[in-house]
Amino acid sequence: MVEKQNLTSLGVPKDDFLDHVRRSLGRTHPVVPPPLHLPLTENLADLEGRAAAARERLEETRGELADRFEGTARARNWNVFRTSSAEESIGYITQLAGRLGISRAARADQPVFGELGVDSALRNTGVELFVAAHDESTSGPRVRDRIIESGLGITGADYAVAETGSVVVVPRQGLSRLVSLVPPVHLAIVRPKDLVESIDDVFLFRRLEYLRNGGDMGSYLNFITGPSRTADIEMKLVVGVHGPREVHLVLLA
C-alpha cells in the first residue's frame, strides 16, 4: 500500500493562477461582483420563504402536475403505471419481475418501501430481494456484487420533474448510486409529494438543503430521464448501453 501523501494542491498555487486570471481581465485586485440573479449568500429565512411558497404552489396543482409528469415521462420512454392503489402497484412490480424472468432484484432503502410492502410480495414470487443498504453484513464490495447480480433495481424518487419527465435521485445512506444504474432494468416509485413542476424547483429545494445543512447537500445527484441511450454509430438510436435498457415508473397518484 502506497502511503497516502497529501495531494491538496498540485500544479500552480491557487493565488498565482487566480492572479494571472485577474490580470487577463485587466484587474490588479479582487473585486466582489454584484449578484447576477440571487445573492449567493441568500439568508436561510428568505430561502425558506421562497421554498414554502413553491411548496404551496405545488400542493395546489398536484393533480395537474401528475398528469403533466405522466405525459412527459412517457414521451421520454418511461413505462408509466399510474395507480392510487398500493395493491395494484405491488402487482405491477411482481408481474414485471415475472415477465423479466429474474431470480434476483435489488432495492434502495427509502421510506416509500415501508409504506408499500413490496418486499414480501416479491419474495413470495421466488425473487431473491436484496436491500442495498449499509449494515455490518452487507457493507462494501458485497453491496456492489449483489447489485451487479440483480436483474432489476428498484428505487424511490427524491423528486419527479413534470417539465422534463425526470426522476431525480440523491444517493446517500440507504440509496446506492448503482441501484438505478447497473441492473438492466430500473423501476422508480413516485409518490405525489415527490412531484415538482420544473428543474428550477429542484434547485430551489437543493439550495435550501445546502443552507440548512451548513453547506452540504450531499455528494451526488442524478436526473434520470428515460433509458440509457446512444446514437454514436451512424446516428441510429440504440437503447441500453451502459445504463438500464428498460425503465419503469409506478406513479402513485
Partner: peptide, 20 residues
C-alpha cells in the same frame, strides 16, 4: 429535451453514503 442523465458531483462520498 433533456439527456438521459444529468449527474451532479459535489466532493467525494460522505461517510454515510452507500458507495461512491
Amino acid at each position: 429535451r433533456l439527456t438521459s442523465y444529468v449527474s451532479m458531483v459535489t466532493g467525494p462520498r460522505r461517510n454515510d453514503d452507500e458507495d461512491g
